[in-house]
Design a protein around this nucleic acid. Structure first.
Lengths: 205, 205, 205, 205
DNA sequence: CATGAATGAGGCTTCATTCAT
DNA sequence: GATGAATGAAGCCTCATTCAT
């Protein structure tokens, strides 16, 4: 079973990691428009090598973002905070921070290209990590009851990229908006949400 | 003799409108990356015709987006609602709705490219239209005091594009998030906002 | 017979002259690449008007250059200098000066495009004007016997544009080269010229 | 490990040479306006291939013309002729011959576009090769003292393109003009040259 | 298996010329 | 007859992807 994907040769493995590293860097800095050639060069490999691993630029994007997401998930899971409301806030900040600092991550969530199936996995993972925190917070009446983890993720990602868009904005402007969003999650204000079916892709359930 | 800019010939006027219509459609659908040639074809004219009116793709973008913005401003100004809180909510909904349905509009507000000066004007107009409503709402204690029109616009634009990004999301998913945002503006929840200087370009003052 | 070309209406005549004037200016300044639209605008007429008179850019070029040439011919004929050698030198300077200051004129003589037939006329006129001066100078032993008016014209035109080509050249650098050329025409140095048939187009006979 | 720039792959090398050959041909025939796409097609490669080697049309021009120039310089240096006057004449003939047969070379020396810095190098190389020959000739009283290598090059290039401009001119018409120019260089005729500062770019010193 | 060369569609833009008003 | 709008081929260049070495 483990034999199905026999481990890569040492150098191949190393190349793979260098590619992913370079792509992470490039996508983070320049967004998904980062050129494939540039990434290969940064990684110190030929384009061919890159394409052998990732038959399509989309595949590379998926892989990189998958990694970024898994990392995020790990960090979310590592949150050690007894108070459910504060735990959720911490998670929210974490997700927002990562999106804020990674243009590619934002592009991924925003991209209106049909790379759907690949991205679904990422979102699902993230949702799975956020859900327990959200439910706990809701049970503790720290957060309104009518929102889903999908809602949370969507709104966080959207708001997180606000500062870098403006050339003279302070780079942490997004923290401002994060506070507003969190305030909007308070049960004290809970206006009735319209009953639109949340997107399957986002909510995952 | 007639007006400041003598009116275009009938057919030219018609073509101009067809170009603008096609561009509006294309930018709305595909974002600002929509190709010039495709727009010309959609409009049923040669590229040359398009370039006669808009010597640069940027000019076309500016014209189309300016029109969209002015329209928005007009609609915002036309809001007739005595209650300040509801008036602001109506304006927010309006802006969000238009951004939600127009990918170009979003790109314009979000673009990280230095087409600054042209787009700044648009933002300023919008801000000028929103400011009185926001102030009135704040005076009436319907909205927290610590946010600016810039904040409002930035967060609205960001949130509004949420639904269209997901292929199986109901097209009005953004309404859900709008409610959350508006709730976050309530003075009842007002957590202290971090003191980051809001961006000059957005806030305008 | 005179009725064949009935005189243009007054305004048409004026337009024609404005076009020629604008084109002269533009070609002189920017060379033959000067755009037709720009010329029409400078002339204060529509492109259509221009094209009515000159069905082709080539025709416009021909007309303008013809005019410039006729002017040159007139000036050459007006040279009033009893000494044959000095008369020829004056003519040479005149032709060179005009070529030096008119990029279009140079382009015309240099252009390797097949507008042959139109330009032939010009050259012939110029040659007809230069020939008597040259012959007189040769009879007076002021100039070597083995060159033709075609030779003279060709070499003058070539040398005249030298200065403007170099950005930091003094604008009258060509005068330097003109002297060298004239010295080369002296009978005192006359090396045997190779017997290549001079070009029909240039020599005209 | 091998050389400074490791040699290209066999096929790449072949393509590179085909590109350079096609460009040399095209520039020689049509001047520097020759289209990039056409050159690529002539070379039997895609445009992309061409642009991989020469990121800019200017780079292609520079490379091709640099090669042509270096070749010329080598040939000039290889002149083996004890008599200083005849040596200079041979060099002049060589430069003229090459310019006569290569419209691109002429455009390079003549171009009024500010691609200065690249082309300057070429001119300097050529001047450096001509200078010793000129000085020797001047020391031997075979050539007038008041001209510089810059003068020589400028006038040669200008005169060399005379024949190809006329469609029915014998292709070696320039040889005729070369003789005239050389005669003009004779110390026996030396009229006083006007004291215009020769262009720095041309004279080099 | 890695390399990087090759490909070519597609993007923005210019300009001589035609044609509806 | 004048106008200037319309046309579209052609120019330079980029970039995801394929393929020979």
């Amino acid at each position: 079973m483990a034999a199905t994907e026999r481990p890569l040769r040492a150098d191949a493995e190393r190349n793979l990691q260098r590619i992913v590293a370079a792509a992470t860097e490039a996508f983070g800095r320049d967004g998904l428009e980062a050129g494939v050639d540039a990434i290969a060069k940064e990684a110190g490999v030929g384009v061919g090598t890159l394409y052998r691993r990732f038959p399509t630029k989309g595949d590379l994007i998926a892989a990189v973002m998958q990694a970024r997401t898994s990392e995020t998930v790990r960090l979310v899971r590592a949150i050690d905070e007894p108070d459910p409301g504060r735990a959720l806030a911490a998670a929210a900040r974490l997700v927002a921070e990562r999106t804020a600092s990674d243009r590619g991550l934002f592009d991924t969530l925003v991209a209106e290209l049909p790379c759907a199936q690949t991205l679904d996995g990422m979102r699902s993972e993230l949702l799975a990590a956020l859900e327990p925190l959200l439910e706990a917070a809701q049970d503790a009446d720290a957060v309104r009851d009518d929102i889903t983890a999908g809602d949370l993720l969507a709104i966080l990602a959207s708001v997180a990229r606000i500062s870098p868009r403006f050339w003279d904005a302070p780079p942490d402007l997004w923290t401002r908006y994060l506070v507003l969003v969190l305030d909007g999650l308070s049960p004290r204000v809970a206006s009735p949400l319209p009953h639109v079916a949340p997107p399957r892709r986002l909510a995952g359930r």
